[in-house]
């Protein structure tokens, strides 16, 4: 592929594989290199992130709204969430 920046495909493939750290800053601002990497990375992700991320955002927005109603409610909800995520946390420390 011909790129204005003259970075070679081999260099970008090495970069994508976790090498060529010197390219980091360049990639940050180079659309053409990013186009190449975007093609290279297509299909790398096993799961669709849309639903989990949107759910987290909804939860965050909900908590922000709830926070306006009272801090105690939020604290209780956060404690419930933590207990749900890690039921053993802190139980035996009391």
């Amino acid at each position: 592929m011909n790129r204005d920046c003259a970075v070679r495909d081999e260099e970008l493939i090495a970069f994508a594989g976790g090498e060529e750290f010197d390219l980091d800053e360049h990639i940050d601002g180079c659309d053409q290199c990013q186009d190449f990497l975007a093609e290279l990375w297509v299909g790398g992700l096993d799961h669709d992130l849309v639903e989990p991320v949107v759910q987290m955002i909804r939860l965050e927005l909900f908590l922000m709204e709830a926070a306006k109603l009272g801090g105690g409610i939020v604290a209780d909800m956060m404690q419930a969430l933590i207990t749900y995520l890690d039921p053993g946390l802190g139980k035996d420390d009391k």
């Binding site: 994508a16 299909g43 992130l49």
Partner: peptide, 24 residues
């Protein structure tokens, strides 16, 4: 949020690839 969902759909592989490159 539908608009943001489309943004995620569009760039999720790229973002994952960028993170994967570093953390492996």
């Amino acid at each position: 949020l539908d608009a943001f969902g489309e943004l995620i759909r569009r760039h999720q592989d790229f973002v994952y690839g960028a993170a994967m490159r570093v953390v492996r």
